[in-house]
Design a protein around this nucleic acid. Structure first.
Length: 201
DNA sequence: GAATAGATTGTCT
DNA sequence: GACAATCTATTCT
C-alpha cells in the first residue's frame, strides 16, 4: 500500500472532494495501523468561499498550511473538543482544502474501537469529523504533515472495493456563510451506514 | 429516531 | 470576550 501521488491533490477542490470518496485514509502509528474508506467529504474554496477558514484571504498560523503546496494535512480544533482532518489542494497561494467528514472502518478496527472506547461494530466509531480523528489518533501533531512522502505515516491510498453511487448536498453547519450556504459541495456514498448527519440520499 | 442542551479551548475581533 | 466545518448524554416519541 502506497500513498496517492501529489498529482491527485492538484485537481480543482470540488472535483477532488468527489474523487476522494471511496479512497482509503490510513494512519500508521507505534500502536499499529488504522484506516478506512472515505465515505463523506466537503470542499472549501477560499478565499472567496465564506464558509472556509481561509475566507477573504485570511492568513494566520492556523490557516498557513492551506497557502502552501497540495497534499498536506490541515488539522484544527473544533468547538474546543474535537479535531478535524482536511487535506490541502490547489496551487501555492490558493487556500483550498477538503474536509473528511466520515470513513468506513477497514484497517485496525480493534485499535480504533479501543481508542474510541466502544465496540468494534459500533457505527459511531468514525461517523463524524471529530470521531474519525479520535479513531485514527489524528490531532494537532499531524498539522502540516506531508501526505505524499515515501515514508508518510498519514496518507490516502487507492482501495480495491468498489464505490457505490455518490450523492451531493449542501455543506453541514456553515449557516454563517451567506450566499455560500447552499453550494452543493458535500459528497457522500449513498446510504452508507457510516455517514454523519445530513442527507443520506 | 429526533430534538435538546452542555461541554470546552484555540483563534480571531 | 465571542464564537466555532462537533460530540455526547438525555429526554422525549
Amino acid at each position: 500500500m502506497k500513498p496517492l501521488p501529489r498529482s491527485f491533490y492538484e485537481q480543482p477542490v470540488v472535483t477532488l472532494a468527489r474523487a476522494c470518496i471511496g479512497k482509503l485514509l490510513v494512519h500508521r502509528t507505534a500502536e499499529g495501523i488504522a484506516g478506512g474508506r472515505i465515505v463523506e467529504a466537503e470542499a472549501y474554496r477560499g478565499p472567496e468561499d465564506l464558509a472556509a477558514h481561509s475566507r477573504r484571504g485570511l492568513r494566520t498560523a492556523r490557516t498557513e498550511v492551506m497557502y502552501g503546496p497540495p497534499g498536506h494535512a490541515y488539522v484544527y480544533l473544533l468547538y474546543g473538543t474535537s479535531w478535524a482532518f482536511n487535506f490541502v489542494c490547489g496551487p501555492v497561494d490558493e487556500p483550498h482544502a477538503v474536509l473528511v467528514r466520515a470513513i468506513e472502518p477497514l484497517l485496525g478496527i480493534e485499535l480504533m474501537a479501543q481508542r474510541r472506547g466502544m465496540e468494534a461494530t459500533d457505527r459511531a466509531l468514525t461517523n463524524g469529523p471529530g470521531k474519525l480523528c479520535a479513531a485514527l489518533a489524528v490531532d494537532k501533531g499531524a498539522y502540516g504533515a506531508d501526505l505524499c512522502g515515501r515514508g508518510s505515516a498519514l496518507f490516502l491510498a487507492a482501495c480495491d472495493a468498489p464505490t457505490g453511487p455518490i450523492g451531493r448536498s449542501a455543506r453541514i453547519h456553515i449557516d454563517y456563510a451567506g450566499d455560500w450556504v447552499d453550494k452543493p459541495w458535500r459528497f457522500f456514498e449513498k446510504r452508507n451506514r457510516f455517514l454523519s448527519t445530513g442527507p443520506r440520499e
